[in-house]
Design a protein around this nucleic acid. Structure first.
Lengths: 122, 122
DNA sequence: CGGTTATATAACCTTTAGGTGATTGATGGA
DNA sequence: TCCATCAATCACCTAAAGGTTATATAACCG
């Protein structure tokens, strides 16, 4: 899992416009104009949002005449999901096995450099 | 699920320092100094990160003499997870039931106002 | 009281994010 | 060829993010 990309993925998901775009793309490809239509926002603004999504790997784009249809690429969502999974213990009922789970995850000492390409284990 | 909070949650998770702090807190409470220690960063910077995490609901803080121990609050992580779950279909193998799944999710027309408190369905 | 420790806050700086309007580029059709 | 359409890019603005140093606040301890 590319942990540097987690930054970009979570940052991309932090904007409601971009989440709505992903939601729209979940039901199939769409061009920029089509994606822009629901929003009180200009086309360049949408293009910027699409660039953010693309740099996060969350969408890819093809070519269909003048259109540049966008397609959802959910792999990064899976990576975000993997990251979150490590904390599932905290929101799912039984904290009983917490200690053994922590052992299992064998938390190493925290990383002194946040720019490093490796997250800590929970 | 508080969808406005999703903005804050994903934004909080977009920073590697904050993810590392959460990872540390997953193994138990810690004070600010203790959290700051692994990072090449001043204490006020860490305090700012903690405020971001707190506003996202990802941590809560107690009082122990001078210390303000931080505790992880994973509820928002569960909410982020719920949001991601809606896209699980895209990263898990069988796309065969995609159409019926989309029907099941009955996507409404996209939201014209991204500041609204409601996301679209995928 | 005075000093030490832990944390928060203020003022500031630089970079990035999210938006705008205007323009440019690519493609297809009359 | 000329024009319309879809989308990207440019120059610009404002606000927010992430860091700094210096200072203030709060609680304990001698």
């Amino acid at each position: 899992m590319d942990l540097n990309r987690l930054d970009a993925v979570f940052a991309a998901l932090a904007d409601p416009t971009r989440r709505a775009i992903l939601a729209r793309l979940a039901s199939g490809e769409a061009g920029v104009m089509e994606l822009a239509k629901p929003f009180a926002m200009t086309q360049p603004a949408i293009s910027k949002h699409l660039r953010v999504l693309e740099r996060a790997g969350l969408i890819s784009r093809g070519r269909d005449a003048q259109r540049r249809p966008c397609r959802i690429e959910a792999r990064p969502l899976a990576e975000a999901n993997e990251w979150l999974e490590r904390y599932r213990q905290f929101w799912e009922g039984s904290f009983q096995r917490l200690d053994s789970l922590l052992d299992e995850l064998q938390s190493p000492p925290p990383n002194p450099d946040p720019t490093s390409d490796k997250d800590q284990q929970p």
